[in-house]
Design a protein around this nucleic acid. Structure first.
Lengths: 230, 230
DNA sequence: TATGTTAGTGTCGTATTAACACTAAGCGGC
DNA sequence: GCCGCTTAGTGTTAATACGACACTAACATA
């Protein structure tokens, strides 16, 4: 018994989340779930689901992400709304995609809701994806790369205290290109965004200076719409 | 009698178009319609309307724009999907906004459908707008400015044959800042995007060299994702 | 104490950018 | 016909930003 009736037909609305995970030294990963329900049961897909009547798309994206993978407090940014007429075999479903880049550290997904399992997949070794999610993911990767080139990243993606080498590796991983060490340091230091700490990271070799982000300066820069080219 | 029934409630989906118009020497204008139907009857708004079941959002945006204003063949680009829960008094309505920048020349809107009237409004002298359309417009202006800084504009916005001064004025108008004449010419010429013609524009003063766009080169550059800073 | 590994640092040539002022060509009025 | 007004058109220079490039420092371990 269908209870919700309208004068005109309405498409369904979903959200999908392309969450990229970064881990020092590793490749970029993507958070995927194995679908438990039809259609595409048993197939891997981006976390996502239907939008509720009393939540914004942002809220829906965050909620679905947490429901299906257990990951909360991830800042998602709207990517694009995909509206191909036949993108979903259930009928007319329009989906607004979100994306994010987060640190893998401490973020182990736990499948729940209609996800049979949930895990990080290396971006270069993806399984077959449900719906048009491969296409969504492509779009998200493009956007992520484009964005990283003019907005600094780092918050969230590194431990509270980190070395310049770690920061450089982050950029090299996301951009998939190597960067000159001296030039990178020059530029980052010139931005005056990092606070050198009194600590050093001990280890097998020469101890590395630890830095932390200066969030105040970060926000100032953010508002003035600055450019940041690596 | 409501004929379309579903197991779960569904939001309505609309599209809205922020179409900016440029005219040599004038300020940037925005295409608005005066709503004929409730809610907001008599108030000015962005052209737009409900999405059909067998059309993509892009198609819906183009269709609504033509229905309400008579303007066709405008290349719209997706801007953002606005989903505030109370953005529409009729209930839950989510709207995907599109934007475009076109030449005013020969584009006189003709109201139809549920638009009582349709006209170009100077961006600096806007009336009160319906729904959250003022907010959508703000977002569109930001995006337009950002985009113009790295993608060349000009096609569509100038007559087939134009002078470098006209092209410069276009940039100055859209960016709302003045540009050094010599530097601008140097840069534009260096891009090798313009064909100097054998003609000059006659008028009251020194005749100006006429140029036209070299569309082949434009497409080449477009594909290589080039940057273009003015 | 010798070796291996990562941290850290400066210069220079080149390319890009911004600032800046005068001459050229046509028109209209006198 | 010449003077004045208006718009078109043109190069140089100084400052800055960028990319390329190689060695020394510090520590751990064998």
């Amino acid at each position: 018994m269908k209870k919700y009736c309208y004068d005109y037909p309405r498409p369904s609305l979903t959200v999908d989340c392309a969450v990229f995970g970064y881990e020092a030294g590793g490749a970029v990963k993507v958070l995927l779930i194995e679908r438990d329900a039809e259609p595409y049961a048993g197939t891997w897909a981006l976390p996502g689901g239907f939008v509720g009547m009393d939540e914004t798309l942002d809220e829906a994206a965050r909620r679905e992400l947490e429901e299906e993978t257990g990951l909360a407090n991830i800042y998602l940014e709207q990517l694009y709304t995909f509206s191909n007429v036949h993108r979903d075999p259930r009928g007319r479903v329009i989906s607004t995609a979100y994306y994010a880049l987060v640190s893998l550290a401490g973020r182990t997904p736990q499948a729940a809701s209609d996800a049979r399992s949930a895990q990080w997949y290396p971006l270069r070794k993806l399984p077959e994806l449900a719906f048009d999610h491969a296409h969504i993911l492509e779009t998200a990767v493009e956007r992520l790369r484009a964005k990283v080139r003019y907005k600094p990243i780092g918050f969230e993606l590194l431990p509270e205290k980190f070395t310049l080498t770690q920061l450089q590796q982050l950029y090299e991983t996301v951009l998939e290109q190597s960067i000159d060490k001296r030039n990178f340091r020059k530029k980052i230091i010139a931005m005056d965004l990092l606070k050198p700490l009194d600590e050093f990271r001990q280890g097998a070799n020469r101890p590395a200076q630890l830095y932390s982000f200066d969030r105040t300066k970060y926000r100032q820069l953010e508002q003035s719409g600055f450019l940041f080219e690596v």
